[in-house]
Write a protein that binds this DNA or RNA. Structure first.
Lengths: 129, 129
DNA sequence: CAGCATCCATTTAGATACTG
DNA sequence: CAGTATCTAAATGGATGCTG
């Protein structure tokens, strides 16, 4: 079933959101967009919910970039008012697996990553007096 | 055996170089640096060879970022002249596997990615007249 | 609703010159 | 050798207002 996307899907501290591995289709939202599309087509406004802090411009840019790379297909749905749907192409879908691997790694090592960063920063501050 | 790093290790058209998946430790070189370190410690100047178009500043920034994330350890080797070695920490080493998965995906779908991009661009030009 | 245009602030990257 | 300092250019991101 395609549930509506939860607004807290990418909470600030969730590893998949602050994931140090970025899938570089041009911008910082692309990887998150792909995850949002994994359960089927979504509309533009639907995608804005879980991303929270993305602007229309940012989301548009992300989607265009993914479209250009052949990972996402954009479809204008006939009917009353504007309605556009985005969905993963087979190519885009094939990216879900490596992405899951990367996210699993990030989750597994999240604490280590944070700790390393903190102790490094603390040591730097030390040296700076 | 630790061979010297080949200058053509990341040739312009090699998928692992133009990899659309970027491991986001701050900059565009980080993922490539990690691959360069996979066979053991390397010196600063040694790392510049396979990266080719990186500047000293860019490489320094990358290495600092990786150090901060706890993926790379920097060691000043005592002796005549300056000598600094960089090597992967266990955490950094644990990243090689997900990275290999991502690179394999990129290689497998490289042609599709290029083709999608080209046909998309061609269609855009078409519309633009 | 789904954007594009415009303006502006911030971040990031490269070139170049210089240092312990 | 292994950087740092400085400047500049380019990319990125957000805010706001407008359009079919």
């Amino acid at each position: 079933m395609r549930q509506p996307l939860p607004a807290d899907m990418f909470d600030e501290l969730c590893p998949s959101s602050l994931n140090p591995i970025r899938f570089g289709f041009g911008d910082k939202w692309a990887a998150l967009v792909i995850r949002c599309l994994q359960d089927g087509p979504r509309r533009f406004s639907e995608l804005r919910v879980p991303l929270g802090r993305v602007t229309a411009k940012g989301l548009t840019r992300s989607l265009r970039s993914l479209e250009r790379g052949g990972l996402v297909r954009r479809t204008v749905v006939a009917g009353a008012g504007s309605r556009v749907e985005y969905e993963l192409t087979p190519l885009g879908r094939s990216m879900l697996a490596p992405m899951a691997v990367a996210c699993a790694w990030a989750e597994d090592h999240w604490d280590e990553l944070l700790e390393a960063r903190e102790s490094h920063d603390a040591a730097s501050l030390d040296r700076a007096g």
